[in-house]
């Protein structure tokens, strides 16, 4: 899932201080799971903002709404009939949702309510860690299911590097060396011979180096739109 972290309340207050009709818009997917932008976080932020503005002597209307997703047209359409009631939206979705919301409703400023951080997993409640950087060409089959792109600080494809010490990365002792994990996993899978096979240069054009990316699936696209 996409992992996000809460923005400081002060920063959000600064974003919306000049508006008097504000919609706090949550998302029911990833940001709900990482407890940054779901229905509960929407309620907390709305309550905090209401109290702040009241305390400042400002009359500000702050409403709450949480959509199933903010990265799909059909869910964003659910606020079309109410969007004109507001002069600002604070979206607690990931950066994707904030942008799609802003693309769809040009006349209403949309402000981010969270910092989108990475694609990762819930190791335990309150601890999320990175697992994927969306490089566009998955190499997990060769690396025993452990990604050196997202988990190695240097993104080394034939590791470990000289900075690996007792299983830790040189950037911090708490950061596990991804290549140590890969070696151990390949041994456990009885595939250690694969470790000797050198990876060729990676085509980074499928990563951010190639600019903004898109996935086109003509087999899924609606043909009636072309005619």
């Amino acid at each position: 899932m996409i992992v996000a972290d809460r923005k400081p309340v002060e920063e959000i207050i600064e974003e919306v201080k000049d508006h008097d009709k504000i919609l706090i818009l949550g998302c029911n997917e990833c940001v709900t799971v990482c407890e940054a932008g779901g229905k509960k976080e929407v309620a907390v932020l709305a309550s905090v903002l209401r109290m702040h503005f009241l305390n400042q002597g400002q009359t500000v209307r702050i409403d709450e709404r949480t959509l199933q997703r903010q990265c799909d047209h059909e869910y964003l359409e659910e606020v079309r009939d109410i969007i004109d009631q507001y002069n600002a939206v604070v979206s607690l979705a990931c950066g994707v949702g904030v942008q799609f919301m802003a693309e769809k409703y040009h006349a209403t400023p949309v402000y981010p309510g969270v910092n989108t951080v990475f694609m990762g997993v819930t190791e335990e409640r309150g601890l999320w860690t990175e697992r994927c950087q969306g490089c566009g060409e998955c190499i997990l089959a060769r690396t025993g299911g452990i990604c050196p792109i997202s988990r190695c600080a240097k993104r080394v494809l034939n590791g470990p590097c000289g900075g690996s010490t007792k299983g830790s990365c040189e950037i911090h002792k708490d950061v596990v060396c991804a290549w140590q994990l890969i070696v151990e996993r390949l041994k456990a899978l009885d595939r250690f011979d694969d470790y000797e096979k050198l990876s060729a240069l990676k085509d980074w054009s499928t990563d951010r180096a190639g600019g903004p990316r898109k996935v086109v699936r003509e087999d899924l696209q609606d043909e009636s739109k072309d005619t």
Binding site: K40, A43, V44, S47, V48, R50, M51
Partner: peptide, 11 residues
Amino acid sequence: VDVIHMLHAFE
């Protein structure tokens, strides 16, 4: 008792 319960009390 959640954060929102306490905030609502103050609100």
